[in-house]
Amino acid sequence: MSDTAWQGETVKAWLASRFAASQVDQDRADRRGRDYGDDYDKAAAEEFVCRLARVHPSVEDQARFGAYLKELLDRDEYNRTGVYSERRFEREVKAYLRKLIRMAKANSGFENTSHFQKD
């Protein structure tokens, strides 16, 4: 667990940077064609999660944010038009939510706003 206090603004900035990166990744995969549907769906899932999380008021409080992410994870389905595979999209949304839950719990990783990140 990080020794620093929860910084809602840092988390919002990270979510905004990931949102922007996911849009670029979707555009790149879309231009490459149907063979890159996996990449498109993964980026669309990241965009979906970041879109919801960055505007939710719970982002200012670590415990509330973690609870909100768990609520999202407990959903039965996630709807987004334009993806190649609904099943793959939903799987990627859940994987991204789990990653974000781990990051929020540990309060770490939000300072890295580079486009390409290790998982």
Rank of each mutant, 00 (worst) to 15 (best):
60 E>I: 00
93 V>N: 06
14 W>M: 09
107 N>Y: 08
101 I>F: 11
77 E>H: 12
23 Q>Y: 04
10 T>Y: 04
88 R>A: 04
99 K>F: 01
48 F>M: 07
29 A>N: 06
43 A>H: 09
61 D>V: 03
113 T>K: 13
108 S>M: 09
52 L>Q: 05
93 V>R: 04
60 E>Q: 03
25 D>Y: 11
29 A>S: 14
52 L>C: 02
10 T>N: 01
51 R>T: 07
35 D>Q: 10
30 D>P: 01
84 Y>I: 13
38 D>H: 15
49 V>S: 08
13 A>T: 03
30 D>F: 14
9 E>H: 01
41 D>L: 05
87 R>N: 14
21 A>M: 09
30 D>M: 05
74 D>P: 10
40 Y>S: 00
47 E>S: 13
110 F>V: 08
19 F>M: 12
110 F>R: 06
31 R>G: 04
65 F>C: 00
38 D>S: 14
83 V>M: 09
2 S>Q: 14
88 R>K: 00
27 D>I: 05
5 A>D: 12
55 V>F: 11
77 E>F: 10
6 W>I: 02
5 A>V: 10
69 L>M: 00
30 D>I: 06
80 R>N: 05
43 A>T: 06
66 G>S: 06
12 K>T: 02
87 R>Q: 15
117 Q>M: 07
14 W>T: 06
28 R>Y: 13
32 R>C: 04
22 S>M: 08
33 G>V: 09
52 L>E: 08
17 S>W: 10
26 Q>L: 11
49 V>C: 15
111 E>Q: 07
19 F>N: 14
105 K>Q: 15
67 A>G: 00
8 G>T: 04
112 N>F: 10
59 V>L: 11
81 T>H: 02
96 Y>I: 11
72 L>Q: 15
107 N>P: 11
43 A>L: 10
82 G>F: 03
102 R>D: 04
8 G>P: 00
102 R>M: 07
22 S>Y: 09
7 Q>L: 13
30 D>E: 05
42 K>D: 03
87 R>L: 12
80 R>Y: 06
29 A>Q: 10
67 A>D: 01
51 R>Y: 07
113 T>Y: 09
85 S>V: 09
